[in-house]
């Protein structure tokens, strides 16, 4: 077991992350999915990423997990470089888990829930006998309040909420330190959503897991995180503690997401812009916004915003 640094140093650190996708074979237009993102996550802390779809939230989450290789920049997990997914030591993988958006996509449809939940344990060979495995799985199912009679069913035979519980159980099987939840409830019913979110929150507090929670709904994001980062076109445009961001949002885009200012939907905007990423929609744009991109800067009390007005 590796030793952990003190609580003050971040568990997960993303330094200057940039990811450029190219669609098409040779002449593909490059698209900046993530651009110059610096992100820190302390042990046991939780951060929510929010922003509209296509803002690069999911890509950033996957880079931090070391599933996608960033074009430039570095990801450090407790000091170990995750930048090249192929070189990540296997024992590191045990300490992180991923909960995808579509619960029905998260499991192999041919496997019973039981085997799907047990899979991380089997991959890492953490259990000795079948009995021990069964005991652990039943305990996990109980932790996420999943009916144990459902364990013998296959994913398409149970409801979305039930699979999502099983996915969480599977994610907890290896006692991870870092968990990325990619919109885990956007496909669920409202009452089930409340249930799952509360479950995730309880688990986070009980097991002291660092949680990166991705959601396009800023209300849900604020429920789950200590801090919120608002993303737009691959950049973080505002980051602050939940209360601060909800009560005094500074960036016009955040104000738009919160419904204070009307945001208009632009279906086809320039993918890679020179100036501020919000320029073409901003109600309070100024002259320099078009030419220069504002940097993310601290405006006091750990409140970061990328806008020329501050």
């Amino acid at each position: 077991m590796m030793r952990f640094n003190s609580l003050k140093t971040p568990l997960v650190q993303g330094i200057n992350l940039t990811k450029i996708f190219r669609y098409g074979l040779i002449w593909g237009e490059p698209v900046e999915a993530v651009k110059n993102v610096n992100i820190n996550l302390l042990r046991g802390a939780s951060l929510s990423l929010t922003g509209e779809s296509g803002s690069g939230k999911t890509t950033l989450g996957k880079i931090l997990l070391g599933i996608i290789r960033p074009t430039s920049g570095k990801v450090l997990f407790n000091g170990i470089d995750l930048t090249n997914p192929k070189r990540v030591p296997k024992y590191i993988r045990r300490m992180m888990s991923y909960i995808p958006q579509h619960p029905e996509e998260a499991f192999d449809p041919r496997w019973r829930l039981y085997d799907n939940i047990a899979e991380p344990l089997r991959i890492h060979k953490l259990i000795g006998s079948k009995e021990e495995e069964k005991e652990i799985i039943f305990k996990l199912a109980e932790d996420v309040s999943l009916d144990t009679s459902l364990l013998n069913r296959r994913p398409f035979e149970v409801s979305g909420g039930e699979i999502q519980r099983a996915v969480i159980a599977s994610a907890l099987a290896t006692n991870p330190l870092f968990m990325v939840c990619d919109e885990p409830t956007s496909m669920l019913d409202i009452s089930t959503q409340a249930d799952i979110l509360r479950l995730l929150k309880n688990i986070r507090d009980k097991l002291n897991i660092s949680l990166l929670f991705i959601s396009h709904d800023i209300e849900i994001a604020s429920f789950m995180g200590f801090k919120i980062a608002v993303m737009l076109k691959g950049r973080i445009v505002e980051m602050a503690d939940v209360d601060k961001l909800i009560n005094e949002p500074l960036h016009p885009y955040t104000q738009g997401l919160l419904g204070i200012v009307k945001v208009e939907y632009v279906s086809s905007y320039a993918k890679n812009c020179r100036g501020c990423p919000y320029y073409d929609r901003c109600p309070v744009k100024m002259l320099p916004c078009r030419e220069k991109e504002p940097k993310l800067k601290n405006v006091g009390g750990d409140h970061y915003v990328a806008c020329f007005r501050y």
């Binding site: 009916d147 409801s159 909420g161 019913d189 409202i190 009452s191 089930t192 959503q193 409340a194 249930d195 979110l197 509360r198 709904d217 209300e219 849900i220 429920f223």
Partner: peptide, 17 residues
């Protein structure tokens, strides 16, 4: 159901559907 909305505090409905 209304109480389980995010703006109303996300209180889940007890029991299973």
């Amino acid at each position: 159901l209304l109480k389980s909305l995010p703006s109303k505090g996300l209180y889940p409905i007890p029991g299973k559907p």
